[in-house]
Design a binder for these strands. Sequence first.
DNA 1: GCTTAAGCGAGACGGTACGTCGAGTCTTTCT
DNA 2: AGAAAGACTCGACGTACCGTCTCGCTTAAGC
Lengths: 186, 186, 186, 186
Amino acid sequence: MERAILEGVMKLLEDGVPLAELSIERVARTAGVGKATIYRRWSGKEELFVDVMRAAEPPDPVLPGTSMRDDLVALLESLRRRGLVSRSAILHNVYAQMKSSPRIWSAYHAAVVEPRRALGLDVLRRGQRDGELRADIDLELANDMFVGPMLVRAVLRPEGELPEGLAETIVDTVLEGLRPVSSTAS
Amino acid sequence: MERAILEGVMKLLEDGVPLAELSIERVARTAGVGKATIYRRWSGKEELFVDVMRAAEPPDPVLPGTSMRDDLVALLESLRRRGLVSRSAILHNVYAQMKSSPRIWSAYHAAVVEPRRALGLDVLRRGQRDGELRADIDLELANDMFVGPMLVRAVLRPEGELPEGLAETIVDTVLEGLRPVSSTAS
Amino acid sequence: MERAILEGVMKLLEDGVPLAELSIERVARTAGVGKATIYRRWSGKEELFVDVMRAAEPPDPVLPGTSMRDDLVALLESLRRRGLVSRSAILHNVYAQMKSSPRIWSAYHAAVVEPRRALGLDVLRRGQRDGELRADIDLELANDMFVGPMLVRAVLRPEGELPEGLAETIVDTVLEGLRPVSSTAS
Amino acid sequence: MERAILEGVMKLLEDGVPLAELSIERVARTAGVGKATIYRRWSGKEELFVDVMRAAEPPDPVLPGTSMRDDLVALLESLRRRGLVSRSAILHNVYAQMKSSPRIWSAYHAAVVEPRRALGLDVLRRGQRDGELRADIDLELANDMFVGPMLVRAVLRPEGELPEGLAETIVDTVLEGLRPVSSTAS
DNA sequence: GCTTAAGCGAGACGGTACGTCGAGTCTTTCT
DNA sequence: AGAAAGACTCGACGTACCGTCTCGCTTAAGC
């Protein structure tokens, strides 16, 4: 039942129904379900959307474990692919919608965002221990330096293509730095 | 008139009215204005919000022009301060709300996001010409590498404080790279 | 507008829609009117029905004034004809429905029942003064003795025909009494 | 079981629960019974109410048999007392409610109204045979002339008290007639 | 005594209507 | 002409019941 409803919502989103027209009544009608059945499980539109997001979330990426650099590439690859899912643009809107309610947002944050962030920090911690990362760096900041560029692409320019090698490019460039070699040598 | 309406909306937001309760009817009531007067100027809730955002946007940052690095710090400082504005959390929601409508979003994008991005690219282009930036780097990517970390902080962890020196830290770290010196040498 | 709604309800009733299916939503749909428009005028189903009843009420009967007996016949004729209106059976149900809410009932009572009763009492008072009625009789009781038999026919046996001369028969019989002449003489 | 449900309904009515709030769900909840148990016995709200009415109906009046007049008084006394039952006002509403469904109404009519009416006609027939009633009178009409005044009091003016001697007064007055003696002589 | 089926409470289900609210349109009245 | 005011249609909100249905659980009879 829950499954049917969640899938109904995703089907509607994929069919291009604008999020603003996604009323509970319409979801119920589409799923062939009474409104009460929805309200019995979710207390409102937002809670329902958290679950839709959770259901659409790709599985945790598999980390090769060969090096910090490779793990980071895998993590960013997962982010990139997430941005490529056909329904991505719409899911981003759902995500956006969620931010309107602090309660909802923190539920989503705890369930999805935080675990992914912890995973990144783990990788970085290991990398720092193994000497792949500058020792004096703040790990939180480092994490944002990898995740941020990928997210800004996915969120602010979703029309874009998020090309194949993007994850590698970002990881390597961030590790390397942008300063010209000559200036590094100086 | 327009001024009064926009200010009315901002006053409501500052007073902690949740965005979801910001109906046109309420805006009209608060501003002591007929609904038709609002609809005469904006075609709907979203278009109105674009203008609210535009009005709340801080002025373009002043670039010192002493170096690319200093200009970048100034740009990021402006972003950081933006995230500190008292009403920021709520404006973020407005921003989020806007993404629900592609039409609205692209209006906002063209009016606010894009100019800021162009400004950043200019700075980077100048820096690359002046040898402050690796010559082989994609400027779009470089821009995202500066902007992304700041944004990811402001959006995903808005409870945080966005401390004073953050802009400098990010700019310097991104320029420098994260790889330990020894490994760079290898 | 009010007119259109009331007439819509009556049309539905005449078309044989059972009272139980007369939801506000259906009335609105039929009248091509928003629900709010109905709720702006009536606070609920019952208040609306009071007005439907009032609108369907036949005009006050014209009293010939030639004698108390003739006036009474005219009053009862009006009652009888009321029971004959094509939609009578259904209006009776509306009437019945109204009794479920004391508030509604007393509104209807004050607007419709009481004036009619006062009219009857007037006629009787005049008749008593003119010697057409026993001097020792309670006028309230007398009124019920005329009205009661007609009502009991209309309400409890609505399938019946309520034949033409019924009003005269009742008035004359009640005035005359049922005791056989011989026993009157004794 | 049935007993428990019927008594539950009556208890609720006595406790002043307005009829409109007497949902099957509430009855079930109150009686500590599943909804299905009710639907297994009655096909809906109305059928249940018929049985509630039947159960609340006072026993058939005992006719003294000393004379038609005394029997009629006994019959009307029973009607009067019925109107005095503490829950009468509410039962009247149930009765009213029932009229909304012709099917239900005719069931109630057959089970309760008609037997009572037949009893009255019997008494009148006997009285006519024994010379206590005018020979030329329509018995149906005569019956309504006794029952009507009492009912009109009970139904239209339920706030009233229906005083002790009312039955006798009505019977005697109807038998006697309302015309002044002098005019009878003329 | 053991089982099997009927009847039970509980309550989920697809629906419909409730009464409220906001969207966006339109009309009326005033300035 | 443009504004405030507010009524209008439409449709979603979240709640309550409808009448149907499926669950386990109790309990009584039939073996």
